[in-house]
Design a protein around this nucleic acid. Sequence first.
DNA 1: GCCGTCCTTACCGAACCCGAACACACGCCT
DNA 2: AGGCGTGTGTTCGGGTTCGGTAAGGACGGC
Lengths: 218, 218
Amino acid sequence: MLVVEDDPAIAELERRFLAREGFGVHLATDGDAALDAVRRLRPVAVVLDVGLPGRDGISVLTALRAADDWTPVVLATARDEEVDRVLGLEVGADDYVTKPFSPRELVARVKAILRRQDGRPRRLLEHGPVRLDLDRRALAVDGAAVELTPTEFNLLEALLATDGRVVTRAELMAEAWGQADYSGTRTVDVHVAQLRAKLGPGCPIETVRGVGYRLAGS
Amino acid sequence: MLVVEDDPAIAELERRFLAREGFGVHLATDGDAALDAVRRLRPVAVVLDVGLPGRDGISVLTALRAADDWTPVVLATARDEEVDRVLGLEVGADDYVTKPFSPRELVARVKAILRRQDGRPRRLLEHGPVRLDLDRRALAVDGAAVELTPTEFNLLEALLATDGRVVTRAELMAEAWGQADYSGTRTVDVHVAQLRAKLGPGCPIETVRGVGYRLAGS
DNA sequence: GCCGTCCTTACCGAACCCGAACACACGCCT
DNA sequence: AGGCGTGTGTTCGGGTTCGGTAAGGACGGC
């Protein structure tokens, strides 16, 4: 469970009530930290304040969903920011609470969401004989399981997510390594080679000379 | 099964999906008819719309519970009627869905409730040779009983509940320990080792390097 | 005070990532 | 056609991170 809230008093309140229900709670105080935390911690759900300094909640949510991350999100909006609520649901929030809210209500909302998403189908990325299970973090080629290292997995995920568009090495670095600027090393190439080896003869990863890589047309 | 809903289109939708699951479905379009139907038909469960004309859903539910009738009730509330949901649960609803909801979700919710309050609500988690009895807090592997300490039990329960999805150490901490934020200790690893030892050679707990653990198989 | 359970720490082996080095492919130019 | 430069494929060893495990101490129940 991740709570994103810049007011320390409110954050602590939320943390206490969620913890009492048995959730392990992490805190983040701004949008970038939140995105990073979701990536690293893979929380079961996120309570996201809309009125953050700098990168606001809506922006964070948009970034998450754009990255194909469907971690359940409860938005916390101020009473008069109705626009944000509507916008939030459109952008992919699972529910929202209006400040000021009772902690009990927040807890109830979070639990409801978790219940709702139980038994939800797994997130899968498929392309030809390749099937990547994001929830199990497992890969199958022609139905046979294939082991992947963490970076190989992230790389393949980044490639499959683009679904045919050309991806530069810099973009792949950013996607699979978190941010790290691509400073002219060959790291990406090496891992692509590894991936191709593991994917076998039907490997759909094509080289676009001078630009980067892309998936073969389905 | 009784569906109480004043919008004929929605009512019909619900009826069709519930019927497909083998439930005999009756309809009622207002609160008084609903109360009457519950008394006469004694349905196994009720799907109850909150926004009824005249006597509303909350009132119907209150009347039922006041008459010591504990027929399982799933409330259907509009998204912005947050008060009703909290109120409904306090008044004795067993669960609720938020409009607009998918019919499949409704069915799942109803089934969950029936399962929960089935004559023998003996909750079992099974996976391969492993069988975990949540009510007796007992574990059997290949039919042979195995003793578990409380933390080991919680840990295994958390793993089995996710059914193959990757679970981070932070999540396991949250699930099995109640709250404790995972601050970089190796506690989880140690207990996983214990578990593996007790589960024996056919142990389905796999390590996902850099992320966490998951169950083997499907 | 003994015993079981739990948490921490430390150590070791293994997996992994990176960067360099070398070999190869492609395309352009003459 | 052949040569050359640039960009890419692939291999390999060093250094680092990560997970398994064993041992020791803290805490609480009996």
